[in-house]
Nucleic acid binder design. Structure first.
Lengths: 344, 344
DNA sequence: GTGAAAGCGCTAACAT
DNA sequence: ATGTTAGCGCTTTCAC
């Protein structure tokens, strides 16, 4: 059943039916009711492609993920973000397209996306430092929001991010307050801007308290379980007096491995080792007073996705408005789940 | 730059240009080269919506996830499946649309999807037992593949699944072979067919060896970390002589909580407690001889996604061919990673 | 308040 | 081998 048939059934022109369905004011109330009723009865749905072609809007938002960032999609944090964004989309009649673009073909891929006109805007995930995709998208003229930033200063494009620097400053400070001097930091890859900012936060807290940073305790690798396990195991194999007593873990995934290594070493988190995990959300930690941790609850990450989607839809509706930046503050949570906090 | 303009530039008709670009045989080689070259030079991209409207194919595949199955999208297994499917799609020029449909509105939502003509086919995730979506999709006539099954017998629709029964039969048998008599089974919700099949496999192994099934050791809940933690903690609080010595965990996520509980109880996996985790893939377990486990490596799950996508594209290309079913065998892996095995 | 006609950018039947 | 024409299903002037 298409518009034309529906119109014929009703003895009206397609134009009028279209107007009635789309709530144009010039249609009489009587006709509108009649049309809408018939549309429901006949199970009529407008053809999205035809609408799209006629209006120029596709009602599709792309989420773009470099394929080499596989770790990210597998990261529950990413998934929660998507869940949040989905909610915004479904409330506004948009659909979500997941685009994993292979590296290398990047430029071509983005140009494809834009000029095929199949998306009204995109959310760019896993940006790297000085990500060339920003210039590319601006040049193409496709509305976009970055999930993360690519430098400290840029105000000429829209992004949403957490304040990673402040987050890790707080986290490090907590370990210091607990009396830890030998603190190991297992960070993500520092070509990512968020990881750079985390490093800055760590350094800032260490330096402001004049605590020495042991270079042997500093790591920067893709955030995997294996990484967490290997490094933690190696660190804990040293004698108690010289090994780190505090662990700062840049993600939940790293913590999976680290926990196992701690376990195998016969130690307990919160006793022999204090561990702070950035984006963890382990509900069973919530009542433990012994394990300081820095959490990003899942619902907050979801909220970040929701906000990012909101921003993008706003930009699409009003392309002339300037870019918008949102820096979400993380709150440090010790042993219980409190306020909102999201992670990269 | 659109087809018409490109054609004008070349002094050709749009038809010829279209044919040249789409590799129709009747175009002369000379013209084809000329057209393709010009297309690249002018950065021409066909408009997907217009193509879609003209051909009837949208080159979009939907992945459909009930919104209440949030646990699933957050499950890395789901994500890996998507990564695999994406690969098939990008190789074949398809795009992936992620549809999270709120429960309740289900029927309407699916009809929308189908009649809006925005997807050529769908992959249905997290089917429940006797899932009504199967009938609905058949009625609508939208090609689909189920990721999982909805009953033991159905041969009239396409699905891809692992042999959950055989997998859990093997897993249980391993625990029995190791001498365990008190085996606890933390299953997923048994309205899901896969969970039913897992239960069947467990029972089958227990009964064939005439081992008593302790009803206090049987659980069936949504697969969360909290579940794994709570139940394991409770189980292990009993005296050694009566508490379970073997744990059969239906998912990686459950294991996250269970591991923590085991740790807190001062026990070690592979020593005081033998644990088998169905869809775990913890690379750092691979060289451990002490922890029997049943793994689904991530690459295998990815392969399942890839295969599912292949099946769907085949159905779309050839709608008259009958439905196809693929039951992937899981191989039990003890302490090292071997052959292919995928999970629900 | 309603309708006729043109057009969004492409493909496909039917010429030639 | 190339062009002409019609049409996919909708929206949007413009006219009445």
């Amino acid at each position: 059943m298409n518009l034309k048939q529906l119109a014929e059934n009703l003895g009206l022109s397609p134009t009028t039916v279209s107007r009635a369905l789309n709530d144009y004011p010039e249609v009489s109330e009587v006709t509108r009711r009649r049309v809408k009723k018939a549309a429901i009865q006949n199970n009529y749905r407008p053809n999205a492609k035809a609408m799209s072609l006629a209006t120029g809007r596709s009602m599709v938002i792309g989420h773009i993920l470099p394929l080499d960032a596989k770790n990210d999609i597998v990261n529950p944090i990413f998934s929660e973000f998507i869940v949040g964004a989905s909610q915004t989309y479904s409330e506004n009649g948009y659909q979500l397209m997941l685009s994993m673009v292979p590296e290398g073909t990047t430029n071509q891929a983005y140009r494809n996306i834009a000029s095929k006109g199949s998306m009204d805007g995109v959310i760019v995930h896993s940006p790297i430092n000085q990500d060339p995709r920003v210039n590319l998208l601006q040049e193409i003229g496709l509305p976009f929001v970055l999930h993360g930033r690519i430098s400290d200063e840029d105000k000429n494009y829209s992004w949403i991010d957490v304040n990673n620097k402040s987050a890790f400053e707080q986290a490090t400070q907590l370990l210091l307050d607990l009396g830890h001097q030998r603190i190991a930091f297992l960070n993500g890859e520092e070509q990512h801007h968020f990881a750079q900012r985390r490093r800055m936060g760590f350094k800032s807290a260490m330096q402001s308290t004049k605590t020495a940073i042991n270079p042997d305790f500093q790591f920067s690798e893709p955030m995997t379980e294996e990484y967490g396990y290997r490094v933690t195991k190696s660190l804990l194999s040293a004698p108690e007096k010289v090994r780190p007593s505090g662990l700062l873990l840049s993600s939940y995934v790293i913590a999976l491995g680290a926990r196992r290594a701690i376990h195998e070493a016969g130690l307990q988190m919160g006793k022999e080792v204090s561990v702070i995990i950035h984006d963890d959300e382990l509900s069973y930690f919530q009542n433990s007073e012994t394990v300081p941790q820095f959490t990003a609850t899942r619902s907050s990450v979801r909220d970040a996705g929701l906000q990012a989607a909101d921003m993008l839809l706003k930009i699409i509706k009003n392309p002339d408005a300037g870019p918008e930046q949102r820096l979400l503050e993380c709150r440090l949570t010790v042993g219980s789940s409190t306020g909102p906090c999201i992670s990269n």
